[in-house]
């Protein structure tokens, strides 16, 4: 079954025929986490680095922010049978888009905030396809953890 994931949402599956899918990432980042021994996959579509900018929104939609969303993702993965120490992470998205004041690059700041959380909590990013200007779509197969990233013209394995 295909499980579509919108902005600020996350889904976790341990069913071998499921595929987690998220579309048009832009400066958002898809964090794809996988426990290869227990075949548990989780994908979250993060829009902003830090919930401090809007704590109301973080309550309603914790997955919108890296700091509130990532703990939820890993919590749910453990509930579905993942072992934290087996989990490996791949990132896609984080295109270079400036904030409203044209001050900093939101995509890069998202990617860095996600890596900060992961490093501090013992999860490693083993592959990433971030930055640049394309709008990426990600498909993530639960059976083997294979990830395909695509944009308008092409697709490639992550």
């Amino acid at each position: 079954m295909r499980l579509d994931i919108g902005i600020g949402e996350w889904k976790v599956s341990n069913k071998a025929d499921d595929e987690l899918k998220t579309y048009a990432l832009g400066s958002c980042v898809a964090v794809c986490a996988y426990d290869p021994s227990n075949h548990v996959a989780g994908l979250i579509h993060i829009a902003l680095p830090d919930s401090k900018v809007n704590s109301e929104k973080a309550k309603k939609l914790p997955g919108y922010f890296a700091d509130t969303g990532l703990p939820k993702l890993f919590e749910d993965m453990v509930k579905k049978g993942a072992d934290k120490k087996n989990i490996k992470v791949k990132l896609a998205g984080g295109s270079s888009i400036m904030d409203q004041n044209r001050h900093f690059d939101i995509g890069r700041r998202n990617t860095i905030a996600i890596k900060r959380y992961l490093w501090k909590n013992g999860f490693g990013v083993i592959k990433e396809d971030t930055g640049g200007n394309s709008s990426r779509t990600v498909g993530f197969k639960v059976a083997d953890g294979a990830i395909v990233v695509s944009n308008a013209g092409s697709k490639w394995q992550l």
Binding site: K85, K88, W119, G122, F123, G124, I126
Partner: peptide, 10 residues
């Protein structure tokens, strides 16, 4: 050490 552990050598 941490990078190796995170890359699968835990």
């Amino acid at each position: 050490k941490r990078c190796f552990q995170m890359a699968g050598y835990q």
